[in-house]
């Protein structure tokens, strides 16, 4: 005897089709823009340029992974769920701490833990504000963003602080199997993230907390700890990214906070690439490369960089509108 079960929602077919169309549309847009740049922007397809895009994307990628984890753990609905607006400013603060310590003559063995610890502290502050004080994430992380940005200015006096260490040299100029150290960082970082987020029980539980808090609690998951954890991780990601930032520029420079827009755009865009319309590491990686390529292509075409941030902002609006439209049942 077979059980007969019917999907009661009669619109479900049209609905899945719609989702499919959005996903395919996203991939098509991605490919289309790549092809457009390949044809029109001179030097876009050279191996030097592609490597350049990947290297640029490393920093963006680390930060976007941080926000992605926050998105996963606090609700895949961007508007009601969590967000970490402080992540780029946090990275700036970490970079400042790191560079200042190196400049004062402390080695990497102290400066790196100090940078990471700074990131974790800011992450903890976010978790405290969101989970313990229950302040709306958009607002609380915005406030923390300003705290971090202010501290960065206090530490650096708003100046460029040069930094050098053997590790930084390796990161900036090292190569292995013909691939630069920064690119390796992205590859290894992404692989680790995939393992944790998509292949470990912790990842699955994090998704369940973000997907339906009540359901997660009903099976005995401590949801609050997972949300705290996601903000801590986001702080950690900022700390790790700060080292790459200093390595790439050989200095800590003001303006790291401006990375927020592309990072946010990438993490949001990533969800469109996934079957479940949830943030994934693979999706975020793809989106990061897309955004990296976008600004790179614009540069090559000689379009003012001012336009890039406009395009990224527009992208955020479109993606959020499309995903929330797709989720509406």
């Amino acid at each position: 005897m077979k059980l007969q079960l019917f999907k009661s929602d009669m619109n479900s077919n049209g609905y899945t089709l719609q989702k499919m169309a959005i996903r395919l549309g996203a991939f098509a847009a991605f490919l289309g823009i790549m092809v457009f740049f390949a044809v029109t922007a001179r030097g876009f397809t050279t191996s030097y340029n592609i490597l350049n895009i990947i290297e640029q994307s490393t920093i963006l990628g680390f930060l976007a992974f941080g926000i992605t984890v926050v998105f996963i753990g606090t609700g895949t609905d961007v508007q009601k769920g969590g967000i970490d607006l402080s992540i780029a400013a946090n990275a700036g603060l970490c970079a400042a701490v790191y560079a200042v310590l190196l400049e004062r003559g402390y080695g990497d063995s102290l400066a790196i833990p100090a940078a990471i610890a700074t990131g974790l502290c800011v992450g903890f502050l976010n978790g405290f504000a969101v989970v313990t004080l229950r302040i709306m994430p958009l607002l609380s992380t915005l406030a923390v963003m300003n705290i971090a940005a202010g501290l960065e200015l206090a530490v650096t006096q708003n100046t460029v602080i040069g930094a050098a260490s053997p590790l930084l040299d390796t990161l900036a100029f090292g190569k292995f199997l013909g691939i630069s150290a920064l690119a390796w960082c992205l590859i290894i970082g992404a692989a680790l993230m995939v393992a944790i987020v998509h292949y470990s029980p912790v990842g699955l539980r994090l998704y369940s907390v973000g997907g339906n808090v009540e359901a997660a609690k009903s099976v005995g998951i401590y949801a609050g700890r997972y949300v705290y954890g996601s903000y801590l991780f986001s702080g950690f990601a900022a700390g790790a990214a700060s080292i790459l930032i200093v390595a790439r520029l050989s200095a800590s420079t003001p303006g790291t906070g401006l990375l927020l827009l592309p990072v946010l755009a990438a993490a949001l865009l990533g969800a469109v690439f996934s079957r479940r319309f949830v943030p994934t590491i693979g999706g975020t990686l793809l989106a990061v490369l897309f955004i990296g390529a976008l600004s790179n292509g614009f540069q090559l075409l000689g379009i003012s960089s001012y336009w890039v941030s406009g395009v990224q902002g527009a992208l955020i609006l479109v993606v959020v509108a499309v995903t929330s439209f797709a989720k509406k049942s």
Partner: peptide, 24 residues
């Protein structure tokens, strides 16, 4: 009380996942 973005298997085994080393 189910996570709508989870798969059937994930919903059944959430918090009792069969593992291989540290991985599901």
């Amino acid at each position: 009380l189910l996570v709508s973005t989870a798969t059937v298997a994930e919903a059944i085994f959430l918090r009792n996942e069969p593992t291989f080393g540290p991985f599901i």
